[in-house]
Nucleic acid binder design. Structure first.
Length: 588
DNA sequence: TGGCAGCGCAC
DNA sequence: GTGCGC
DNA sequence: GCCA
């Protein structure tokens, strides 16, 4: 068998469902997967969970990677570095099995030099003068161009037999001078040349999802979304539609047939010709506040741009004034946000919050909390110890928004209280004037004194933060030229405007609220459906049975009651918690 | 064949 | 009640 | 779309 006598070490651990599947594959083919530190010696092939490997083949999320480590982190890396062990993607296993040979040379190796950057990103001087001269920050962006590729040859097929070397001094990976990276023979290829497993199928599902999503066919689009997640999670190469339907969750006869068509012909008819109509629909729905219903209605009226709507049905933007802001920030709000920028936003908000009520707490939720490298928006949850009175929080919110606005941080608000209207009036009027709409009376803009959530547009100054080159150059949506006159999106040199959400909860409902706002949306639907099947109801206010609240403060107890493991936020991304594979494993 | 999460806010 | 967003 |  192809893995006879070969020992594998799976990092950071082999405990997820997909990795247990891989473990079984390895052992079915004569290999062994290491479980204890005492086994860390001799010939070892190191496999790294694909979700910790970036596209350019570096290690990502070192914090979580370390946290998830099953064995002794330092000792393992010491051993890997000492013996120049090759590190590969876990997904290589299915390639080997498919090819029937263990050929390391054709597989890209993982560049572990990312570990060198441990904790040292974001080193802009916080108090450096804002002069015209090139600041240290600029040069900092150009660091890290050194090549750490070792020249030495490694005979991968015949790793040297080594004795266990566990108790030597163990420098942290960050100080190891020359980690064993990207070295193999000339046949070495970069990951980017190796298509991601089943990427064609994943791409097709994504497009079908999008297609029905913009059409408003909610449930059908969800079907494709779940199918996509299943395929992404699938650790082996899908060979037929039938196989996919048999072995993966959320793949039924219709998708199986489509998979078969793609595998056989390389394309799916009707996939690429995303119709003119669909594209127009998508343009509108990309604007905050415009959903499929409104987009369809506009399309039926022959509108193809926001300017068309403004001319033909100006009332649309008067009653739906938040979409006027969606239009203005169309481009900025489609840009991704780095984790470090999210953290900067938190600190700005925290600073003002402490001036208003030092007892009120705030924390990042959403995709940031799930460990995403980039976020679409920033979600903040506010609460106050032992405070179940939301009026108190609403008042804090109002003062906080006012303070943040006065400091130039808040660009716009999508909900208004009467008091905040007065503060934002001139800004709003400016936008109405720009498109020559009549400015409505005050009571048009929200009459509630207390609101418990705010959707804001916010911007950090250059002094507070500078986006990384890559993110600044990243892809984002563009307005049609005729719509551009309304754009308030950032100029090249500024930071983009960001979407910032404020949520709040009663202290007694903190756990349930954290589940809700940490998401993902798919995870919420899954766990709420599960609750419903068990006769419970789960909302942001708590877990209920027969109208009676069972638990709302302790997240863990909610998971326990629903008989699911206490899934950490990083595993609440779609596809990472429940599939057929997972079910099999939990049943077994 | 019916169900697919559940809620707040604006209109 | 519907549309939208989370 | 998929699933019970």
């Amino acid at each position: 068998m192809i893995f006879d006598g070969v020992k594998f070490l799976i990092l950071p651990n082999a405990s997820t469902a997909a990795l247990q599947f891989i473990t079984k594959l390895i052992e079915d083919n004569g290999g062994h997967v290491i479980e204890r530190m005492s086994e860390v010696h001799g010939k070892i092939l190191v496999l790294v969970n694909d979700s910790y490997v970036t596209e350019d083949y570096k290690l990502r999320d070192e914090k979580y990677f370390r946290k998830e480590f099953q064995l002794d982190y330092d000792a393992v890396w010491q051993f890997i570095f000492d013996h120049d062990l090759p590190c590969l993607n876990v997904s290589s296993v299915s390639d080997w099995i498919a090819k029937g040979e263990l050929n390391v040379a054709h597989i890209a190796l993982i560049d572990t030099s990312a570990l060198e950057n441990d904790e040292t990103q974001e080193n802009f001087p916080s108090s450096s003068a804002n002069s015209e001269q090139p600041s240290p920050a600029c040069t900092a962006e150009m660091k890290d161009t050194k090549t750490s590729h070792s020249e030495s040859e490694t005979d991968i097929e015949g790793f040297v037999e080594m004795s266990p070397s566990s108790n030597s001094p163990m420098p942290a990976p960050s100080v190891i001078p020359d980690p064993p990276v990207i070295k193999a023979n000339e046949k070495y290829v970069r990951l980017t040349e190796i298509p991601r497993m089943n990427s064609q199928l994943i791409d097709a599902m994504q497009r079908l999802y999008k297609k029905y999503d913009i059409k408003g066919d909610h449930f059908r689009s969800r079907g494709y979304k779940l199918a996509k997640a299943s395929i992404e999670k699938c650790p082996f190469q899908i060979k037929s539609g039938e196989q996919a339907q048999l072995e993966l969750a959320n793949i039924g006869p219709s998708i199986a047939k489509k998979i078969q068509t793609i595998l056989a012909s390389g394309t799916l008819p009707g996939l690429d010709d995303s119709s003119e109509l669909d594209q127009r629909l998508e343009y509108f729905t990309n604007c905050h506040g415009i959903g499929t219903h409104t987009a369809k209605r506009w399309l039926a009226l022959q509108y193809t741009s926001f300017t068309d709507v403004l001319r033909g049905s100006p009332q649309e933007f008067v009653s739906g004034w938040p979409s006027l802001l969606g239009w203005s920030y169309f481009e900025d709000w489609s840009r991704k946000i780095s984790r470090t920028e999210c953290e900067k936003h938190l600190s700005v908000v925290k600073q003002c919050l402490s001036e208003i009520d030092p007892d009120c707490q705030v924390e990042l939720q959403g995709s940031y909390n799930r460990g995403s490298q980039t976020c679409g928006d920033i979600d903040l949850l506010f609460f106050k110890e032992n405070c179940d009175n939301l009026v108190v929080i609403a008042e804090i919110f109002e003062r906080l928004v006012s303070l943040l606005h006065s400091r130039g941080y808040i660009q716009c608000i999508l909900q208004l209280t009467p008091d905040l209207f007065d503060e934002f009036k001139s800004k709003l009027k400016g936008i109405f004037d720009k498109c020559e709409l009549p400015f409505p009376a005050k009571n048009h803009f929200g009459n509630d004194r207390h609101i418990h959530k705010y959707y804001l547009g916010v911007k950090l100054t250059k002094h507070q933060y500078r986006s990384e080159e890559l993110l600044r150059a990243g892809q984002y949506l563009h307005l049609k030229p005729c719509d551009n006159f309304m754009s308030s999106s950032s100029k090249k040199s500024e930071n983009p405007c960001r979407r910032l959400d404020f949520f709040c909860c009663k202290w007694s409902e903190l756990g349930a609220a954290r589940i809700q706002w940490t998401g993902s949306g798919e995870f919420n639907r899954w766990i709420r459906l599960r609750a419903a099947k068990m006769g419970y109801k789960l909302t942001q206010h708590g877990l209920f049975k027969g109208g009676q609240k069972l638990e709302s403060f302790d997240e863990g107890v909610i998971f326990d009651t629903l008989d699911v493991p206490r899934i950490p936020p990083e595993e609440r991304e779609q596809g990472l918690w429940m599939t057929k594979l997972n079910e099999k494993n939990t049943v077994a």
